[in-house]
Amino acid sequence: MNIINIENIAKIYEVGTEKVHALRDVSVKIDKNEYVAIMGPSGSGKSTLMNIVGCLDTPTQGLYDFAGENVSQMNDNELARIRNKQIGFVFQTFNLLPRSDALHNVELPLIYAGLSKALRRERAEEALENVGLQDRIHHKPNELSGGQRQRVAIARALVTKPSIILADEPTGNLDSKTGEDIMTLFDNIHSQGNTIILVTHEEYIAEHAERIVRLKDGLINQDEKVRKRIRKTSAQMESN
């Protein structure tokens, strides 16, 4: 059963009188527990695709079916509901609320889901523990390192138990060592049965995935499985 079923979608922006085809004709299917990297140079349409996959935006043409629901025709509030329940976002710039502590940041999606305070707290603490930040729950973003911030963001993405985790350049603002730690965390999350979609332009990051979809000029250029080289890498790291 596909979680994501995208058929012939196109996204056309109108800039003045000119029409910009950010996506021309893209079809992609993603299964449960897949680990997919979306790659492409800037202007290839990968951001646009990520926004559509993440239900932040809707396609101009084509069909997008998410876990059996047609999201291509949904209104803003229905899209918000899908994002809240089904999608966990991890951004390059972390995008935490600066005035709120880690716990409240992780609780936030649960607030919009309408959970009770006690339940919210319990699940947020559990999520923070899963990313190894049980000692930092009352720290504000500016009291945390980049890697810790991204862990908070990952905990926030996981706390709703979403169908997919959508990570946009999650290591882009981190040094390579911290970036590697974060990728290991993603690998573990994947091994726990989660579906991960990774948007990146770094080859070595993409190699953590099992499958790489390459975009070029608004079209899918290449869509291939990755040989399990990544497993070796991570095994190597562990042995080091």
């Binding site: 932040l56 509030n77 994002r83 809240n84 995008n95 935490l96 919009y112």
Partner: peptide
């Protein structure tokens, strides 16, 4: 604006 974007991304509805 950014905070609004974050809230919307993680599921805040128009009403919220």
């Amino acid at each position: 604006t950014r905070e609004i974007g974050i809230r919307k991304a993680i599921g805040a509805k128009t009403w919220s």
